[in-house]
Every structure is written in C-alpha cells, then in structure tokens.
C-alpha cells in the first residue's frame, strides 16, 4: 500500500527494552477480526497496556505520559512469530513511523516496509545508548535520516542498512504492486510455460 513519503524524522522516542517481542504481543489474535486496515492502534500491545478489566497498566511505557513520539525503540528480535500484517498496521495507526531494534524478524520487517514504517537496525551498543538516553531524559530527540541512512541521538550517530529498492519506495511512497504490475506480460508468459 503506497502511503506517506519518508525522508527524515526528528522525534522523541518510546523505550521498550524487551527482547523477542512477538506479533501476538503487538496485536493479540482476538483483535484481528476487522476486515479493514484502520483502527488497530487502539489495541497495540493490548495485554501489556490494559488489565483484563480494561484499566491502563500504570507501569507500561505507553501509559506513561512522560514518553511519546513517532519512534519506538525495542529489544532484539522484534516482530517474531505470526506473519500478521496487523502488527505493522497497529504500529502505524498508533502513530509510530520508525521502530529501532538490534534485530528484526523477517516477515515483520517486510510488512513494516510495505506500510511506511521504517525498521532501523542498530548495533547492540547503539541500542543501549539510545535506550539510556531516552530513559534518562524522555524529551531527548532522535533523528532518523533515511537519505543518509543515519540515526543520531545526543551527538552520537550510527549508519544503518536498508536495501536500495525499499529505500526508493519509502522516499517516493511507491509500493511493490506497481512494480509487479509493470511485469504483467513477462509473468503471463512464465505462467503459461510453467
């Protein structure tokens, strides 16, 4: 789905230093019953955010008014488990445009990129630097520069990898289907010969 264009983002960030955050935590299965892409943000991290009687869990970071912003900083192996794209939709719908971690699960990474959410892979060391900076001062701003593939906080920065094609898609708001549809003739021939 083509969406907003992404070049540079400067924002405060939300720290969530938990490892192996699976997509069942990001959006539990019982909230996957909608047939549209919107509205999933309401239930982002539902069972960490709310008690069983729908009261906010006080010590969960999304309920802490000190923290906010468009960048989520999480522990390694973010987005493992189910292929549900609803996880990327929920993150987008809540207002995040970047997730930073030292490691992402493959399917989540693709889903995020297909929904204008930029997954930024940093070293374990830089992840710690980021988390410490944000936790010490929630007003700390983090800059994510897609053009130069660089993430910075408090004067420290690190380069991040992204493949050239996906980078171009994000910068221009293109999606994969546009490219594949342009190959229609070749695909038809392949299908017939196969």
């Amino acid at each position: 789905m083509s969406k907003d264009k992404f070049t540079i983002l400067k924002s405060t960030a939300v720290p969530l230093p938990v490892e192996n955050i699976d997509t069942d935590q990001i959006i539990p299965a019982r909230f996957l019953k909608a047939t549209t892409r919107e509205g999933f943000g309401e239930n982002l991290f539902r069972d960490w955010r709310f008690t069983s009687d729908n009261q906010p869990v006080k010590d969960f970071v999304l309920n802490n008014p000190a923290f906010g912003g468009k960048i989520l900083v999480a522990g390694k192996n973010f987005g493992c488990g189910s292929s549900r794209e609803h996880a990327a939709w929920a993150i987008y719908d809540y207002g995040f445009r970047v997730v930073v971690s030292s490691f992402f699960a493959d399917i989540f990474k693709n889903n995020a990129l297909n929904n204008a959410v930029l997954p930024v892979v940093v070293s374990d060391k830089f992840l710690q630097t980021l988390l410490e900076a944000i936790q010490q001062n929630p007003k700390t701003e983090v800059t994510v520069d897609l053009i130069n593939q660089q993430i910075s906080v408090n004067g420290k920065s690190e380069k991040f990898e992204i493949n050239a094609y996906k980078k171009e898609c994000l910068i221009n708001g293109y999606d994969d289907i546009d490219y594949l549809l342009s190959l229609n003739k070749e695909i038809r021939e392949f299908d017939l010969a196969h």
């Binding site: 609803h86 594949l180 229609n184 695909i187």
Partner: peptide
C-alpha cells in the same frame, strides 16, 4: 507472507 504480499500474489 503479510497481507500486502497476499495482494501482490493475488494481483500478479
């Protein structure tokens, strides 16, 4: 795959 990819495969 994710749903955007399901759409890609259905379409192409």
């Amino acid at each position: 795959i994710g749903t955007s990819e399901v759409e890609q495969v259905l379409a192409t």
